[in-house]
Write a protein that binds this DNA or RNA. Structure first.
Length: 320
DNA sequence: CCTCAAACCTGCCAGC
DNA sequence: TGCTGGCAGGTTTGAG
């Protein structure tokens, strides 16, 4: 269940490993993994002969700007040679390793189009040698020069890939982008904005945090974690939040996400980065998936309820 | 406009 | 042991 920190980790890995290589071809093993706007065979035809200029993240979406592949392009140098490396190493080398999101809006029209990916719940993008055995849930394979492969593996098949033609507004194809709220690390996501969006709203704050139009990138895990860190109960109706609570929650959202990115994504899901290495959120969640276990702050058993159809975890003492 | 719940899908696990 | 039913969750869609 990749959320913003996991998608950001993947994005950085992809920028290190996959750029400026010709896409030689591919294989779509599950047609429904390709968004309806294009057939599987057209999808592959359009990508063939292109290369990836750069990967971007917006919320939980990954977007690759494509370019027409040419040998000259590659000569200007690329980062890795696809060698097996440790997550920490390439993070240190990646120029944009600051906590600024690798996102930008609006997406300028591109001469050569875009590749969009959403991992939904169980999607993984893996950078492997083409000779590697193909696991059961492999949905899409893209073959790149150097005997390398970008592989989309997705057990529950909710994940999607899009091809956006040249000179086309990205959000007209990847329509989910239209309703995304601000990136949590952007200036646009100010405390004032946050307070304004919660003002007089009747729904529980947990439900609001999962709403991608409020802030982009939070999912069930980090919503629960941010609520714990700020000491706010998930069931609190937005309209009832005090200014102080809103301020604490605003800060907690940013802090929790930054911390998770700094450790390469969470480990309390079956998340793998592009090289198949498990993330490491510090290995510790405050409340997520800890029903009945002692609160790490006060030892009270963590409670679990269902809210907006999602499992929701909180400490009845630390959160009020 | 606002809010919520169902649907999409497959593997896992508790309970019988 | 083997089966069944419930659960997991991001986003879209439709109902109220």
């Amino acid at each position: 269940m990749p959320e913003l920190p996991e998608v950001e980790t993947i994005c950085r890995g992809l920028n290190h490993l996959t750029l400026d290589r010709a896409i030689l071809g591919g294989d779509v093993l599950l047609a429904s993994s390709i968004a309806r706007s294009i057939s599987a065979s057209d999808f592959l035809t359009k990508l063939k002969g292109k290369s990836i200029e750069r990967w971007y993240r917006r919320g939980k979406y990954l977007l690759a700007e494509l370019s027409q592949f040419s040998e000259g392009e590659r000569e200007k140098g690329r980062g890795g040679e696809g060698e097996k490396g440790r997550v920490g190493e390439f993070r240190a080398q990646t120029p944009n390793s600051s906590l600024l999101p690798s996102s930008f809006l609006p997406f300028p029209s591109s001469q050569t189009g875009w590749l969009g990916v959403h991992l939904r719940m169980t999607g993984q993008l893996l950078w492997v040698n083409s000779d590697e055995p193909v696991p059961k849930h492999t949905r899409v394979r893209l073959f790149l020069e150097g005997n390398q492969e970008l592989r989309f593996v997705d057990q529950r098949t909710f994940g999607q890939m899009w091809y956006v033609p040249p000179e086309t507004e990205v959000s007209s194809v990847v329509t989910g982008l239209k309703v995304l709220g601000p990136e949590p690390f952007s200036a646009e996501f100010s405390r004032e904005y946050f307070a304004h969006k919660l003002h007089r709203r009747a729904r529980p704050i947990k439900t609001a945090l999962l709403d991608q139009s409020l802030v982009a990138g939070l999912g069930n895990i980090y919503a629960d974690e941010a609520l714990f860190v700020s000491g706010v109960l998930p069931t609190t109706v937005c309209a009832d939040l005090t200014a102080e609570q809103i301020g604490r929650l605003h800060a907690a959202i940013i802090q929790v996400l930054q911390k998770a990115i700094a450790s390469g994504g969470t480990t309390f899901s079956n998340f793998l980065n592009v090289q198949g290495v498990n993330g490491n959120y510090g290995g510790v969640a405050w409340v997520y998936n800890r029903k009945g276990q002692p609160c790490r702050a006060c030892c009270t058993p963590i409670e679990r309820i269902k809210l907006a159809g999602r499992s929701t975890h909180s400490c009845p003492v630390c959160q009020t």
